[in-house]
Amino acid sequence: MSVRLKLLLALTAALLLAALLAPLLAPHAPDAGATAQRLLPPGSAGHPLGTDGQGRDLLSRLLWGARPSLLAGIVPVAAAALLGTAIGLLAPLSRRWVETAALRSVDVLYAFPGVLLAIAIAAALGAGLWTTVVALSIALTPPVVRVVQTEVLRFRDADFLAVARASGASWWAVALRQALPLVLPALVVYCTTLVGIAIVYAAGLSFLGLGVSPPTAEWGSMLDELRGNAYTDPVLALLPATTILLVSILFNALGDALRDQLDVKERSVR
């Protein structure tokens, strides 16, 4: 394992731990604000990262905000990975018409740019954290199917799969025991990068008012709230924007390091 990969894994673990321990680490309650302490600059006494327009401590809000933001980044990817793998793995191995039907439906979903699909679904279901999770789960499934499908197609005609099938193993057994291990490296790499993308999408939905609604601390809605102060307090406005950027870079770099580690070829899916 490369030093780079170890470092990135440690950083990811630290990030997840910080979100988990937010109640212990945060110096203030995330939604306790005092109007007298509005828009304090970073470095103020008791508020290391300053306060927002309602006098709420930004460090505490960023820590608490990590919980819904990471949740909305990780849960949809897990769901999309399960669903996408199931479709991508079983479709090429199953009957012709099942494959056609499944892949055509994915084609239709694939025709929507991801954010647009998520926006449409989130708008339909109404704002909220779980809405975001559902919308992203659906929006992220088609690309996962593509990844799995490309990998499976590389191996579909391999002799050992034919042998397994000829020996009377069930579709399920062939898919899980033979095909899944072949697909796994590419899937792990892609899903790691996908977490970064999902975090960005989730915060984006909140930013548009379709995700977690105020006053709950969440990176996207914090960005939206502080956007209005960009002209007067640019540093504060950039805090959530930079946080999302850094976390996104973290997951993409982790995916890249995993790609090198697992020797997965660079492909264009997204």
């Binding site: 960005v200 984006g204 930013f207 960005l223 002209y231 924007a241 930079t242 950027l245 996104s248 870079i249």
Partner: peptide, 22 residues
């Protein structure tokens, strides 16, 4: 990698603040 990771709204805000406002 940094470019891939850069959310449009973060970058947009960054550009507005740094090159537009400041």
């Amino acid at each position: 990698i940094v470019a891939i990771s850069a959310p449009q709204y973060s970058v947009a805000l960054l550009l507005v603040v740094l090159l537009g406002v400041q």
